[in-house]
Design a protein around this nucleic acid. Structure first.
Lengths: 136, 136
DNA sequence: ATTTGACCTGGAGTCAACTCCAGGTTGTAT
DNA sequence: ATACAACCTGGAGTTGACTCCAGGTCAAAT
């Protein structure tokens, strides 16, 4: 599969895919004789994984470390697990933070609504009353 | 309150506080005659709000817009509410994304555990057996 | 065989959000 | 009165993660 096909498939740009490979976010992609990237299904799975993890904000560096270990074989499984565990905790912590902020936003929005909605209804009532008067 | 006291209180640096003010993330802080910042309790509430929102990843620009509107008075309340609503939705969407990734990480970690834990137990058993043999 | 579009690399540029610095002023403790 | 720490501003530098570009190669269609 060509780079632009993969880019299309995952909603990334070819530039980003090349960057991910250079940065070690995905293992080296196989090449044609001419030297052009020829993504396999496995390459695609890595791309999808990288996209997902990056989307959640895992740092490029941590993912690159994970991939580097992966490429070094089975013996690195414990180290890889340690990275996953650490990033999982960091992610959960960030989410907890965000949840608290979300709650706070909801609270604030509810307060704005409490103040603004009555005003709007009042306004709507006035308009309706005027319309009725105009009807006669 | 001086800038470094406020920085201390909220775990930010004076530089960041000055940046927040310059960027409009908080309204202008009152000054002493000499021109040095003298944070009031209200300034502090803004700082805390900015810290919380930034911690959840709300963009500086959106917050600055919110603050600018706030400083323009009551008539801007609907516009402020619109910003809060939009940022709330964006935040919720990001969290949903992160939750999916968190689930995926948990799944992956469980698989690593399933493969690695038995090995470790086996190793521990071997060590225990050797120790027992050495006891005699 | 040639055009034309996609691909390549290495490196520079951009963006958001800080972070640091130089050169100068203010405030406090001796 | 004099240090000397903390503060000020405007502007430059840094970091992480892309994004773009120049100059050249590869490949599919005429």
């Amino acid at each position: 599969m060509t780079i632009s096909e993969v880019a299309e498939r995952y909603g990334l740009t070819p530039d980003t895919l090349r960057y991910y490979e250079r940065a070690g976010l995905i293992p080296p992609v196989p090449r044609t004789e001419g030297g052009q990237r020829d993504y396999t299904e496995e390459s695609c799975r890595w791309v999808e994984f990288a996209k997902c993890m990056r989307g959640a904000g895992l740092p490029v560096e941590a993912l690159a470390e994970y991939v580097a270990l992966f490429c070094q074989g089975d013996a690195t499984a414990p180290a890889r697990l340690a990275i996953l565990r650490e990033q999982r905790e960091l992610l959960a912590a960030r989410m907890a933070d965000m949840q608290a902020t979300l709650d706070r936003l909801d609270f604030k929005i509810a307060r704005y609504d409490a103040i603004l909605l009555p005003r709007e209804q009042e306004l709507a009532a006035t308009i309706a009353a005027n319309a009725q008067r105009a009807d006669r």
